[in-house]
Amino acid sequence: MHREHLVTAAPGVTLWAEERGDADAPALLLVMGAQAPGLAWPDELVDALAAHHRVIRYDHRDTGRSTWSFDSEPYAITDLADDALAVLDALGVDRAHVVGMSLGGMLAQLLLADHPERVRTATLIGTCALSTTPYTAPDGTVTPVEDLPSIDPRILEMWANRPEDLGPEAELDWRIEHWRLLNGDEIPFDAEAARAQERRILAHTGHARVSTAHGRAEHSGMIRTEALAATDVPTLVVSATAEPVFPPPHPQHLAQAIRGARVVEIPGMGHALPEPVLEPLTKAILAHTGA
């Protein structure tokens, strides 16, 4: 079953949401990264998860078919976590398995810290810990959070020089080069698959405008050191060996910061969801939610 919804998340803010799978199956909420709509979750992954779950994905504010309002009504990143709850509320979901990627992984941490009664399990992909706990390496070396590896400078340069109003085809070209870097250097990059995915997203969105809202939104008030260290929510951290945004040992640090969390490694994976990683990622998520 494939059902679409428009959810009122706040005054003047409507979110597009979609659900697939048996409506009576355990709910699983997919939370995407910054500036990425729900369609950035590949259909192949969504359908594989929907064989076991009522899978819900949605467009953040200022992405896809949701309200684009940041320039007139600025919001904080923490408001995006409230949006995720609004989606669950609107669809009548008391508790859900939550899978978050990148910024979505941070929002998932806010949910398990602030609303643990709503989260059955959490799966965190390509993200960093909302914690000030330092990282202790296997050899005993202690690294402060601020000294953990930073984002690939090639990606930072692309972000810093992001053109505006390129037009649809030039915008597509920019996005493909962006995905080429996010893909990492281990799995061969499939430019045509990435282009087809972005064409679907453009068609879904209805325009090629660029939003930088999530980068400009207020980022303060997100640290949850104590709550993460005390949580009872079963948490899985995906470690991607070719991750260029939050490279290892960020996943290992996450697993130390979140009580009881465990790590699963997906060789070759970067900060993207190309076809070769979908089967191992699906298996890891389903093993976690099934446990």
Rank of each mutant, 00 (worst) to 15 (best):
T143G: 01
E157S: 12
P168D: 10
D152R: 11
M158F: 09
V145N: 02
D165Q: 11
R154V: 04
E164L: 14
G167V: 08
D152A: 11
E157N: 12
T143D: 02
G167F: 04
A170M: 08
P153M: 09
D147T: 15
N161I: 02
A160L: 06
D165V: 01
A160V: 01
E157A: 15
P163H: 05
D165E: 12
L166Q: 12
P163G: 08
N161R: 09
L166H: 04
S150P: 03
N161F: 01
D165H: 12
P163T: 10
T143H: 04
V142T: 13
V142Y: 03
E157G: 05
P144K: 14
V145R: 14
P149A: 11
S150R: 14
P163C: 09
L156H: 00
M158K: 09
V142K: 06
W159S: 09
I155Y: 07
S150N: 10
I151K: 12
A170I: 04
P149Y: 08
I151Y: 00
R154P: 03
D165N: 15
D147G: 07
L166D: 04
S150A: 14
V142D: 00
N161V: 05
G167T: 06
R154A: 15
V145K: 13
T143M: 03
T143Y: 02
P163K: 07
D152H: 06
E157F: 08
E146N: 11
P144S: 11
L148E: 06
W159G: 09
I151E: 15
I155H: 03
V145S: 05
D152K: 08
A170C: 05
W159I: 13
W159A: 13
R162A: 09
L156I: 06
T143Q: 04
S150V: 10
I151R: 15
T141D: 02
P153W: 03
R162E: 07
R154Y: 02
E157M: 10
R162Y: 01
I151S: 07
V145I: 15
P153C: 04
P144H: 11
W159P: 00
L156Y: 00
N161H: 12
M158N: 01
I151Q: 15
L156A: 12
P168A: 15
